[in-house]
């Protein structure tokens, strides 16, 4: 029995090691390639890893494309969307959880509709709307459609429902206006849900590609992903792979770093994102 268990553990470790190696190798290889000294041919050396690590490719990538603008754009877009979302989903989530009013179910189904029909699918009509509003090539055009979040409203509705109703009633008797009940009672108690939403939202918008691509046509308004795509497509030959990998890692670095630091939080947040 004991021997069987040990064998079982050994087999699991072996299997997982092999699979995880396959999973990690692309990233490690991209990293290895990106720190190759300029001129050193790709795919040479022990385990195809570079002989003399160098950050030259990162410096070159940084100057070869307007990454500063891209970075700022992405930060503004993610931050702007999140700020407005936190406001809209808190209010709507509260209404759907705790304010019974006629038409509530019908209105809620509109938010479910957004869960079912993501923006990428409705890109054509939304693009035409942005064109009519003369918002093409603005960060606002990228942000506007995301500022109401069906996912967020759904999440916050669940979270608010888990707060005992008596606490709201105690708050109201203690002298709270409705917004004070939200601020002092509900929000402190639903912070985990808000944090989870924030993580998923920022990750999603940091990585979003098609919609920003459609409504922008110059680097001025473009986020990192769209910038990276044009950067990668511009130099699609072997010699430039180290440069492309450096650029790619520059784009992914903040999220990767955040993930490695706060894995648990990321995983539990993404489990909540399964609603759609």
């Amino acid at each position: 029995m004991i021997a069987g268990r040990r064998l079982d553990t050994l087999r699991s470790n072996l299997l997982l090691t092999v699979v995880c190696l396959v999973w990690v190798v692309p990233l490690v290889w991209a990293l290895g390639t990106s720190v190759r000294a300029p001129g050193e041919p790709v795919g040479t050396g022990f385990l195809w890893l570079p002989g003399r690590p160098s950050l030259a490719n990162f410096a070159e990538a940084w100057s070869a494309a307007p990454f500063v603008t891209y970075y700022l754009n992405t930060i503004v877009i993610c931050g702007g969307i999140l700020a407005v979302q936190l406001f809209t989903i808190t209010l709507a989530g509260y209404a759907f959880a705790r304010v019974p009013f006629p038409g509530r179910e019908l209105l809620f189904s509109l938010f479910i509709l957004q869960l079912m029909l993501p923006l990428t699918v409705l890109a054509v009509p939304n693009f035409l709307t942005m064109r009519d509003l003369h918002l093409i090539n603005t960060k606002l055009a990228i942000m506007l459609p995301y500022m109401a979040s069906g996912f967020g409203v759904f999440l916050m509705r669940q979270a608010f429902r888990s707060v005992p109703l008596e606490l709201e009633e105690a708050g109201r008797l203690d002298g709270c206006q409705w917004w004070q009940v939200l601020w002092h009672v509900y929000l402190p108690l639903t912070r985990p849900a808000l944090v989870a939403f924030g993580l998923v939202s920022v990750t999603f918008h940091w990585n979003d590609f098609l919609w920003p691509l459609l409504v922008t046509n110059t680097p001025n308004a473009r986020p990192l992903t769209v910038g990276l795509a044009s950067f990668a497509l511009a130099g699609e030959n072997g010699a430039q792979f180290p440069l492309i990998m450096a650029g790619t890692l520059l784009v992914m670095a903040p999220l990767l770093l955040g993930f490695f630091l706060f894995q648990r939080q990321f995983v539990s947040s993404f489990i909540r994102s399964g609603i759609r």
């Binding site: 005992p164 009633e169 109201r172 008797l173 709270c176």
Partner: peptide, 20 residues
């Protein structure tokens, strides 16, 4: 009159203390 303006305090069965 809103609850907060009635000058009434209530003790709840489950106490309803603010956990945070």
């Amino acid at each position: 009159v809103a609850p907060k303006d009635r000058d009434i305090a209530m003790v709840f069965q489950n106490y309803a203390l603010y956990p945070h």
